[in-house]
């Protein structure tokens, strides 16, 4: 059997063995057999009508409903998201305002504190100054007193020495008045 023969016999289906139902169906298209039309039309009407009924009374309302619902829901969600965004912006603004407020208040408090501290410091300084001045004065007074005292003691010592020197030189005890005037004269000369 050549390839050509195979192709020819395949392409010519009439040559293929007809298995069954070869009785009434003559040659030609089964589609043109008008005797089958009433049955096909009847069952088409029944099945198509049934499908139409199913679609209109169950499927489409629910399917359309759920799609509608989802569309609404998504729109709602978008609105809600926009609302959240607005709130977030508000919160941010409030936060910024509070922050600025707090900063200003902190600055004010710092300034106030600084001022009061300065005052306190000045007070303390004044007090310290006064105390220092007082003790300074006291010290000066004591120094003056000690100076005077010291001077008096020096004079007394001088007088003693003078007396002793005079006694040794002339063997005469000078009167205290004479020593005094002599010392005064020396002190003046000095």
């Amino acid at each position: 059997m050549s390839l050509v023969a195979i192709l020819v016999s395949a392409a010519a289906p009439a040559a293929a063995p007809v298995v069954e139902g070869a009785g009434e169906a003559g040659p030609g298209l089964p589609q043109m057999d008008a005797s089958t039309y009433p049955s096909q039309l009847f069952w088409l009407a029944v099945t198509f009508g049934f499908l139409y009924w199913i679609m209109t009374s169950f499927v489409l309302p629910r399917l359309g409903g759920v799609i509608e619902e989802r569309r609404d829901r998504i729109a709602d969600d978008f609105d809600q998201a926009a609302e959240f965004k607005r709130k977030a912006e508000e919160a941010e603004a409030a936060y910024e305002a509070a922050l600025a407020d707090a900063k200003a208040r902190a600055r004010a408090i710092a300034a106030e504190t600084r001022e009061s501290l300065n005052e306190e410091l000045a007070e303390l300084q004044r007090e310290a100054d006064a105390r220092v001045a007082a003790s300074l004065a006291a010290a000066e007074a004591r120094i003056a007193a000690m100076k005077e005292d010291a001077a008096a003691k020096v004079r007394e010592a001088a007088a003693e020495v003078t007396r002793a020197v005079v006694e040794a030189l002339i063997d005469e005890t000078p009167t205290p008045e004479a020593v005094d005037s002599a010392l005064n004269g020396v002190a003046k000369a000095a």
């Binding site: 998504i74 978008f78 965004k85 977030a88 912006e89 941010e92 910024e96 922050l99």
Partner: peptide
């Protein structure tokens, strides 16, 4: 530190609005 958080916030909010607009536009 408080300033840091303040700086972090605005870009994310911007991004959010961008995404929101994109999602809305895609549907429209």
């Amino acid at each position: 530190m408080a300033d840091d958080a303040g700086k972090q916030q605005p870009p994310s909010l911007d991004e959010f609005s961008k995404r929101l607009a994109a999602a809305r536009g895609g549907d429209a």
